[in-house]
């Protein structure tokens, strides 16, 4: 088990190094930072001075080493626009995105697995056919359309849910949370549902397919032959086997949801990282973009590693491999 975890960690580091290289290239070669920093009307000497100050006169590998060194210390430079450290700017927005993503993933996982099991047990019932058709809709409908439809129905026509923002928040230490107020929850519902819809549909279909397959396995026949009640057979003997691939996908999705909740955050004006990154791209704010990419990569890799470990716990065959 220890070697298994060590292997996963090393793999993660290698991927992170790869991402850092891409980030470095973006940083260094996409647009001239000297031009951005010194301004359009600077003289040649002024530009050279800025170049030296930024260390851009050094050979590429030295620059890269320095980039890595700084990145490892959490220093990704300052935002060109707001002139504050890029990392701080992003971390400030992190709680909003994290809360949204976690709620959405939990919602998608619980409903997806629950409905998936239900549908697998009675595939011919009309309610279940309806659920399957709905899931196809969930997969094929674009996120922005779902968001806009929700706003139209619940905010504009019914007027029961607020259409944008995070609502009332409470600050605990550095963490600003919206989960402790009723208003915060009201604001969270629609974005979370929007973000969860696609994931829910995927998990539902995956669970259903897995369940249908596992229920025909010999060991399920054994479980019935033991005289176990249906709940035990389905939720103990079958579901644990079904969950192995489902947890993997759910974990991957969680990383994606955190990193790429851009569309949803934009529709609901959610003050999270996705919203920030979009603005930064428009304003060519390279340090923020690069920091964001590195951070996203770091999070996705961490989550993947956790999922791999979870996977090993669920699937004993992996543990001894």
């Amino acid at each position: 088990m220890a070697t298994y975890i060590a292997k996963r960690l090393i793999q993660g580091l290698v991927v992170l190094l790869g991402v850092s290289m891409i980030c470095f290239i973006i940083f260094r070669y996409m647009g001239d930072p000297v031009l951005t920093m010194a301004g359009k009307y600077a003289t040649f000497q002024e530009r050279e001075e800025v170049r030296r100050a930024l260390g851009l006169d050094k050979p590429t590998y030295v620059q890269y080493a320095r980039f890595i060194w700084n990145a490892a210390h959490g220093n990704f430079g300052k935002s060109y626009i707001s002139r504050v450290p890029a990392l701080g700017l992003i971390l400030e927005r992190f709680p909003a995105t994290f809360e949204l993503a976690t709620t959405a993933t939990l919602l998608a996982f619980l409903m997806g697995v629950g409905l998936g099991v239900l549908v697998a047990l009675k595939p011919r019932a009309w309610q279940n056919r309806l659920i399957m058709a709905g899931s196809l809709g969930g997969i094929s409908m674009p996120t922005f359309l779902i968001g806009i439809l929700l706003i139209m129905i619940f905010a504009v026509y019914a007027g029961v849910l607020p259409p944008f923002g995070r609502g009332q928040t409470v600050t605990i230490g550095f963490w600003r949370t919206g989960l402790l107020t009723v208003d915060g929850w009201k604001h969270l519902i629609m974005p979370a549902v929007t973000l969860a819809t696609f994931q829910l549909a995927v998990l539902l279909r995956l669970t259903r397919a897995g369940m249908r397959e596992v229920l025909t396995e010999d060991y399920i026949k054994t479980a019935w032959a033991k005289g176990l009640p249906p709940l035990k057979v389905i939720f103990k003997h079958a579901l644990r086997n079904v969950l192995i691939p489902v947890v993997t996908v759910a974990g991957l999705q969680f990383g994606e949801v955190i990193a790429y909740s851009i569309v949803t955050e934009t529709i609901f004006q959610w003050p999270g990282m996705g919203n920030l990154i979009l603005t930064s791209i428009f304003e060519s704010d390279q340090p923020v973009v690069v920091t964001y990419i590195m951070l996203a990569a770091f999070m996705i890799i961490s989550i993947n590693t956790i999922v791999d470990i979870l996977y090993a716990i669920l699937n004993p065959k992996i543990r001894y491999a």
Binding site: Y219, T222, W224, A225, G227, L228, L314, N315, P316
Partner: peptide, 21 residues
Amino acid sequence: IRGKRIAMIFQEPMTSLNPVF
């Protein structure tokens, strides 16, 4: 009755036991 008074074993021991327990 199943398991308690009438029990059954199957052909494929490789697949008749649940792999995750």
